[in-house]
């Protein structure tokens, strides 16, 4: 359950629309089922009251929409941002993707979002999802009510939330949280402890499922190229063909390199992947390495910071040291 209420969010949005601060609001819109929620633009209190939702399934990050909306008109758009969303927001500003003045950010606290695919693994024929006494209650067509612990069905990124503190806002609703000491690198450590062959087999198995739908790229706040190289037929890459297993891995490795230092670890790529590929592990490996080689760095923690790999200082690690370190684990 989220501690801040839907009514409070609607009241805030309605007030900002009424006093002319903004003329549209980016929020989440209800769907067919309790767990399906779509990002949408609202322009009136009536629309908000009939279709706006704020529940445990509002995971979608608005970065891609903000970028599009902010460019549309001279007036301001309002967005509700959860703590993790604000990191993406700052990162986009760092890269000058839109004008800060065009967006009014209302920061909202978040208790973590649920992963509908985890619920579906445990419940068949879902008619409703609700919360009772801190537990998730799923009403099903076949097995009646099923009660699940929140922790079992919490989204991976939320179980390993890096911060409940907002990195940006114009106004904050509810209580501000803290930057957390998350366990997000534990899985990466397990991969590092593998032999090179084991690790190769792990990624081979994961990446071979990729259907190259590009959802991971299209949702990614750090993938903001106007035209992706993989969409350019003149580049010589045959994106849609998945021509061989080597090329398949290259797409992911190239993408991971390209977002290294800019990836805020928002977790959207893993959330949207229809094939459940743990893409966050690639990104977190980069983040962990950067932290170890160059000192702690969190993309999007503030606007304008330079990622270690695009910034040179004389204290930087020598390439040979990095190679040696890689060698140890190979």
């Amino acid at each position: 359950m989220q501690e801040i209420k839907r009514e409070d969010l609607i009241a805030k949005a309605a007030q900002l629309l009424a006093d002319g601060t903004v003329d549209r609001v980016i929020g989440w819109k209800k769907g067919e089922f309790d767990y399906d929620v779509t990002p949408a633009v609202f322009t009136s209190k009536e629309e908000l009251e009939s279709e706006f939702v704020w529940n445990d399934f509002c995971g979608a990050n608005f970065s891609k929409y903000l970028r599009k909306e902010a460019d549309k008109t001279e007036s301001k758009v309002m967005a509700f941002l959860k703590p993790c969303d604000t990191y993406s927001f700052n990162q986009l500003l760092t890269e000058h993707k839109f004008d800060r003045e065009k967006v009014y950010v209302v920061g909202i606290p978040c208790n973590g979002m649920l992963d509908d695919s985890k619920i579906k693994e445990r419940a068949n024929g879902i008619s409703s999802v609700s919360e009772e006494n801190g537990k998730v209650v799923v009403d099903t067509l076949y097995d009646g009510k099923i009660t699940l612990e929140r922790a079992e069905v919490l989204a991976e990124r939320c179980a390993n939330c890096k911060s409940k503190k907002h990195a940006a806002y114009d106004e904050l609703l509810g209580e501000e949280g803290e930057v957390l000491d998350s366990a997000r690198f534990d899985e990466v450590e397990k991969l590092e402890a593998m032999t090179a062959d084991e690790r190769f087999a792990f990624w081979q198995n994961e990446l071979s499922r990729c259907i190259r739908c590009n959802a991971c790229r299209n949702i990614c706040p750090a993938c903001t190229c106007e035209k992706c190289v993989f969409d350019n037929p003149a580049s010589g890459v045959e994106n849609k063909a998945i021509s061989d297993s080597f090329e398949e891995k290259m797409f992911h490795i190239i993408r991971a390199f390209h977002v290294a230092g800019r990836c805020t670890d928002c977790g959207e790529c893993s959330r949207v992947c229809p094939q459940n590929i743990p893409l966050h592990l690639l990104n977190r490996k980069f983040i962990k390495d950067m932290n170890e080689f160059y000192g702690e760095y969190q993309a999007g923690a503030e606007v304008g910071s330079r990622a270690p790999i695009v910034d040179f200082t004389t204290e930087d690690i020598e390439p040979c040291d990095a190679v040696e370190r890689g060698g140890e684990n190979a």
Binding site: C213, A215, P274
Partner: peptide
């Protein structure tokens, strides 16, 4: 269509989507 990411997931998981591209490589 406002929120559509143009990712194509829907077409690739769909049993009836039938469009293809032919190219020389």
């Amino acid at each position: 269509s406002e929120a559509c990411l143009g990712c194509g997931t829907c077409t690739f998981v769909c049993p009836t989507c039938q469009c293809y591209d032919i190219k020389d490589f």
